[in-house]
């Protein structure tokens, strides 16, 4: 009885530790952000972290808010709903979370269609003003693909479970996914908005064979930079007086006056 009660209390403490959700900017010197994405089609699951169900009845195509977690190793197991942790569908897998980083743990299919999990590190680097970042991750049961932007191949030969990324000017691109070397879309085209200072992460997920390929999207904002300054005048029409300039103008006027006086004196003399 006593053992059971302590076990239950440990569970409460563990959930309390893990269950503290916070905004993306909450990463501190000792914590990491973890998002969890479910990208295995058709199968609702339970996600266990360190022996406790963190995400019960987690549905395909669902993304969590970021969890602000103390840095360290976390053990993840994915089971069918209400199944014991001893009957995993995926895992156990160890997620090494380093302080100051942002991660997305994705439950997905590998290229041949078997369930797996991948821990991606999200790029939090500052983006130049006027641009956004596009990250594309291949988490689908499909061979290598090209990512088409506005009809042309923007990224080539992306394979599961890898990513490609680039900073792009803000705007909307028509994005599609096609088998490498082709331009006939297997996903899309779909409009993807590149937002300023935002890392837009697009996942290709599902299964080519089962005809359920789809896109999932995650955005991480707050990565913007600012203009370097504001240069908002060109003519000096409303400038304050410049003391140095006033001094030199005064000196110039004095010189002119002196010269004039000198000339005047000379003129007066020569007139005599």
């Amino acid at each position: 009885m006593r053992t059971k009660k302590i076990a239950a209390t440990v569970a409460v403490a563990a959930v309390a530790t893990l269950g503290f959700a916070a905004p993306a900017s909450a990463i501190s010197a000792s914590t990491a952000d973890l998002y969890v994405l479910h990208a295995v089609p058709d199968t609702t699951v339970d996600v266990w972290v360190n022996g406790e169900v963190l995400l019960p009845d987690f549905a395909p195509g669902t993304l969590t808010d970021p969890l602000d977690l103390p840095a360290g190793d976390y053990e993840v197991v994915i089971t069918l709903p209400n199944d014991p942790i001893t009957s995993p569908v995926i895992g156990p897998a160890t997620l090494p979370l380093a302080a100051g980083n942002s991660y997305t743990a994705v439950a997905h299919l590998d290229a041949s269609g078997a369930p797996t999990a991948t821990l991606f590190t999200n790029d939090l680097s500052t983006i130049p003003a006027g641009q956004g970042k596009l990250t594309v991750r291949h988490t689908a049961a499909a061979p290598a693909v090209d990512i088409l932007a506005n009809g042309a191949a923007a990224f080539s030969n992306l394979t599961n479970p890898n990513e490609v990324k680039a900073d792009l000017p803000v705007g909307t691109i028509s994005a599609a996914v096609a088998a490498t070397g082709t331009t006939d879309p297997v996903i899309g085209p779909a409009d993807v908005t590149i937002q300023e200072g935002v890392n837009t992460i697009v996942y290709a997920w599902g299964s080519l064979e089962d005809d359920n390929l789809a896109l999932a999207v995650q955005t991480i904002s707050g990565l913007h930079s600012t203009p370097d300054g504001v240069n908002s005048g060109q003519a000096g029409l409303v400038a304050d007086p410049n003391p140095a300039l006033v001094g030199s103008i005064a000196a110039a006027i004095a010189l002119v006056l002196l010269a004039a006086v000198g000339l005047g004196v000379r003129a007066a003399r020569s007139a005599r």
């Binding site: 009885m1 009660k5 239950a8 959930v15 893990l18 269950g19 959700a21 969890v36 994405l37 169900v53 963190l54 995400l55 019960p56 009845d57 987690f58 195509g61 669902t62 993304l63 969590t64 808010d65 969890l67 779909a190 409009d191 993807v192 908005t193 937002q195 697009v202 996942y203 896109l215 999932a216 999207v217 995650q218």
Partner: peptide, 27 residues
């Protein structure tokens, strides 16, 4: 301490974390 109620297995399960659809939606 013995009065602590045991968790009811049939109770609806709630997640400790908020989640939402990752579907592509227009900005």
């Amino acid at each position: 301490p013995e009065a602590t109620p045991e968790p009811t297995p049939s109770a609806p399960r709630e997640g400790a974390v908020d989640a939402h659809s990752a579907e592509l939606v227009p900005v």
